[in-house]
């Protein structure tokens, strides 16, 4: 009998928890746009399926369930799209606003950073988790490291705030204007979703053939 060496078994296996833990540091700074994308992408699948399935939507008749599922699908595309785009725009504004002089880092904000990341090691670690290379940090003194971290952190934070503010406005406008036209368009274009429309089409066809 041929036995597979232990090292090879490990090489073929996929260790999900190790994969998660080694990449986890990046999640500490999850941007609102990415968070909205994670929620929206999963909602597109799960919410549509839950609205369509009879055991999770038991009181509605077949046609209402189809209507609900179609509407949920359209809703998820519009809300996720508008939410993610608004947040990305806000984050871009936060990042570029400081570079172009629209905002300034308030005085004493370094103290906030220092209170959160108490040691230089913690500040260095945070810079690495934000994507900065180790060589660029190596020669710097503690004050420079704190300045660099403040310059990295403040635009991200103000961008997140601007992104959410823009998302609140855009979501309200986009939800009011686009969800129903898209739902109606989908119901018109997909006859299997709309029983009444399908019956009307058959009637029209029969009348045309009679003539």
């Amino acid at each position: 009998m041929v036995t597979i060496p232990r090292s090879r078994k490990v090489a073929f296996g996929f260790n999900a928890s190790k994969c998660f833990t080694n990449k986890a540091a990046n999640l500490a700074n999850t941007k609102p746009s990415m968070q909205r994308l994670y929620i929206g992408a999963t909602a597109l699948v799960t919410q549509t399926a839950l609205d369509y399935a009879k055991w999770t939507n038991p009181f509605a008749d077949d046609e209402t369930r189809k209507n609900c599922a179609t509407r949920t699908f359209a809703k998820m595309i519009v809300t996720t799209g508008s939410g993610v785009l608004a947040r990305i725009a806000g984050e871009w504004l936060g990042k570029n606003g400081i570079e172009k002089g629209l905002f300034k880092i308030p005085k004493g904000f370094e103290e906030v950073i220092k209170a959160t990341y108490k040691t230089t090691a913690a500040q260095k670690n945070e810079l690495i988790s934000l994507g900065m290379k180790l060589e660029r940090i190596a020669g710097k003194n503690p004050k420079e490291i704190l300045d660099t971290l403040t310059k990295k952190k403040y635009p991200t934070a103000i961008g997140a705030v601007a992104g959410v503010a823009m998302a609140v406005v855009s979501v309200f406008v986009a939800d009011m204007l686009f969800i129903d036209p898209i739902t109606n368009w989908m119901l018109d274009k997909c006859p299997w979703l709309n029983k009444n429309k399908k019956a009307k089409d058959i009637d029209n066809k029969q009348q045309y053939e009679k003539k």
Binding site: A24, N125, E126
Partner: peptide
């Protein structure tokens, strides 16, 4: 320690 602090924060966010 700083690595652990970041990791705890990250697990919380995830």
């Amino acid at each position: 320690d700083s690595k652990i602090a970041t990791h705890i924060k990250a697990t919380g966010v995830a």
